[in-house]
Computed example of a mutant assay.
Amino acid sequence: MKIAIGQIDTVLGDVSKNLNKIEHYIDMAVEKGCELVVFPELALSGYNLRDLVYEVAIEQDGNVVRDLANRSAYIDIAVGFAQKENGYYFNSAMYLSGGDVVHIHKKNYLPDYGMFEEARYFSRGLSIDTFKTRMGNTTILICEDAFHVSSHYEAFANQTELLIILSASPFWSDYRSMKWQMWENLSKTYAQLNSSFVLFANRTGFEDGVGFFGRSFVVDPMGNIIKEAVFLKEELLIVELDYRDIERAKLRLPILKNEERLWIKG
């Protein structure tokens, strides 16, 4: 199974330009024979939207979604966007396949500390769902979602095989660590506990003086980083996944088989 991560920079508030870039990366992934391409959090709009969210949010039945759905006839697509639904606004991600929107995840945990103001402008989603794709049982988290154990419990309980994390994570460091090391440690841990692949798609570039570090990566079910993208540059990261690794991981660390209470009803 060949997948791609489109680690891109975005233009704040310009959905048309961002869509053109996303479609360009989709075309490249199709040419490389990929079956899935993943883009970062709010890739269609840029991150620091504030009041712009009311101008750039798109609806599920709009032209932008239709354009991407048409391209998903050739490759599965996961992409972050600002969503308008029934007069409310969400930090969302859609998964498209076979010409249709298969699933939309609304970010559950909206950060409101430090530089983050998401809770001021977005409504929060209320569920973490797992859905079927040709990649197997698939779950999408958006950035802050991944820092909450409850999110991973849902993925674990639903026997997720592919965990997709879309992020717009800004860069920081101190004398002990770099920001991406935190993401790597978290993803390695949950890949092993869930016996699943983890795709971390992070944006890059600068926006309102904030730098987004990139360093997107893919982790196998044994907790090994298969491949990682570059720092602060755009890249189409292409990785081959061997789904037999899931079975190997379950044999080596058979945690799921002892969770009978999740599978027995009543």
Rank of each mutant, 00 (worst) to 15 (best):
M1Y: 10
T10N: 02
D14P: 10
N20G: 12
N20P: 02
K21I: 01
K21H: 11
Y25E: 08
I26D: 00
A29K: 07
V38G: 03
E41T: 13
A43I: 08
L52I: 01
A57T: 07
E59N: 11
Q60W: 02
G62N: 15
N63Q: 07
V65G: 00
D67C: 12
A73S: 10
Q83T: 00
Q83Y: 00
E85S: 15
N86R: 13
Y89R: 04
A93Q: 05
M94S: 10
M94V: 12
L96T: 06
L96S: 03
L96M: 15
S97K: 07
G99Q: 09
V102H: 06
H103C: 05
H105A: 03
N108Q: 13
M115R: 14
F116I: 01
R120T: 12
Y121E: 02
D129L: 10
K132M: 10
K132V: 09
N137E: 11
N137M: 12
I140P: 04
D145C: 04
S151P: 10
Y153V: 14
A155I: 06
A155E: 03
A157E: 08
T160A: 04
E161A: 03
L163Y: 11
I164A: 00
I165A: 02
S167Q: 08
D174T: 14
Y175V: 13
S177Y: 04
Q181R: 13
E184G: 03
L186S: 08
L186F: 06
K188A: 07
Y190K: 03
Y190S: 00
V198G: 01
V198C: 03
F200C: 01
G205R: 05
G214S: 05
R215E: 11
P221Y: 02
E228C: 04
E228S: 08
L236N: 08
I238H: 02
I238L: 06
L241G: 02
Y243D: 03
K250W: 05
L251T: 06
G266F: 11
